[in-house]
Every structure is written in structure tokens, then in C-alpha cells.
Simulated assay, not measured.
Amino acid sequence: MLQFGDLALYFSLPTGSGDTFHLADLRGQPVVLYFYPKDDTPGCTAEACAFRDQYEDFLALEAQVVGISSDSETSHQKFAQKHRLPFPLLADAGGRVRKLYEVPKAFLGLLPGRVTFVLDAVGKIVYIFNSMTGATDHVSKAKEVLRQLAS
């Protein structure tokens, strides 16, 4: 997997709203990229809603939140609308970006992994959190790192 201090690899992916997201467009501000297994599953819903509920905190830290899974744009659109998610969900069909970021599979290689990357304003990876079981821990850990960056 990518390591602390590596520069983030830039990519473009479709969003659930039909736009194309370009990571390079966020250069100059911190970014939380969170890879998750599947829309509307219990852990992924808890994680997405935790990011939603604390989204204003991320904005106050001048950071953007972006979710990525292999689900379709339509699935992302329904998931985002159902849970009122204010941040983009990216459709990584075939797992190209997941592979680019070397996000490992979980549970004997059967499920896509859950990994969060925090990028600083220049695109350097300053934190990586890999945990399938602590879905909402991804949110608190990312906020903690962003607070440290801001101080």
C-alpha cells in the first residue's frame, strides 16, 4: 500500500451526480479519501453517516471528504440521496483507483477493504487508516489528523 509521505496519485472518476471528479482539482486543500466496500451495507452506512454528521467539522478544517467504492453511479446517487450525503461518492468500476492506491481486500480476499487516506494541501499522504471493523473510527481519526495539520 502507499505509505506516509508519498504523493497522492491523481485520478478522475464519475460521481453519483453524473459529474466527473478530478482529484487534481482539490490541490491546495486537505482531502480525506475514504475507500469503502459497498453502498447501503451496515458498516458503510454508519461510516458515510458519520462523515455526514461531522461534515461541517471537516469544512471548518478546510478539508474535502470523498468516498470511493466500486458501486455504480446509480447506486451512489441512491445511497447519497437516501442518507443526505453532502460529499461526492465516486464510482470506481473495476476497482482501478482502489488498485492504484493498493487498498487491500479483506476477509480472505472476498471483500474490498476499508481504508482512509488523509492528504495535505500539497497532496502528500499524511495518514492512512486501514480497518474493516472500526467504520466510524475512520471519521474521528481523519479529523484528529486534520486538526494537527491545522495547528
Score class of each variant (00 low, 15 high):
S12M: 06
I68Y: 09
H138P: 08
D137G: 12
Q54E: 08
L85W: 12
Y36P: 11
G95W: 02
A135L: 05
T74Q: 15
A50N: 05
L2A: 02
Y127K: 06
F87T: 14
V66H: 03
I128L: 00
P88S: 15
T116G: 01
L111D: 03
S151C: 12
F51D: 08
V122Q: 14
A142R: 00
L108M: 08
Y55Q: 08
M132F: 12
A46Y: 12
H76P: 15
Q81A: 12
L89P: 12
L7K: 14
L110V: 04
G5V: 02
G16D: 15
T133V: 10
R52M: 10
E73K: 13
L61S: 04
C44H: 06
Y101I: 01
V122L: 15
Q77L: 08
G18V: 09
I125S: 00
R114N: 10
D57F: 01
T15H: 14
D71Q: 11
C44M: 08
V115L: 03
G134E: 14
K38N: 12
R114F: 08
A48G: 14
L23V: 08
F4V: 00
Y127S: 03
D120A: 07
H138I: 07
K78L: 08
P86V: 14
Q81L: 10
A24G: 03
P112H: 14
G94Q: 10
L2D: 01
V115E: 06
V32W: 03
A142I: 00
K124Q: 14
F117P: 00
K38Q: 09
C44D: 13
A142Y: 02
E56S: 13
G18P: 15
S75G: 09
F58G: 03
K99L: 05
P30A: 01
Q81I: 05
V65H: 04
V126R: 06
R27M: 13
H138T: 10
A24C: 04
R114K: 14
A91M: 08
V32S: 03
A60Y: 08
K99R: 13
F107T: 03
F87G: 09
T20D: 10
Y10V: 15
F79C: 08
A150H: 11
Q29P: 10
S70G: 15
P88W: 12
A106Q: 12
P88G: 15
V139M: 01
V126Y: 02
F117W: 01
A46N: 15
G43P: 09
S72Y: 07
A135W: 04
H22P: 01
A80V: 11
A63P: 05
S12K: 04
K78V: 04
C49K: 15
T116D: 01
T136Q: 05
G18Q: 11
F117D: 00
L23R: 02
E144K: 12
S140V: 04
L110A: 02
V97R: 00
R147V: 15
A91R: 14
A93Y: 08
S12R: 06
M1I: 02
K143Q: 05
L149F: 04
F58E: 03
A150E: 11
I68H: 09
F21C: 05
M1H: 03
S12Y: 06
M132W: 11
L7H: 14
G67F: 13
E73L: 12
H83E: 02
R147N: 07
Q77F: 06
K78T: 11
E144I: 04
Q64L: 07
A80L: 10
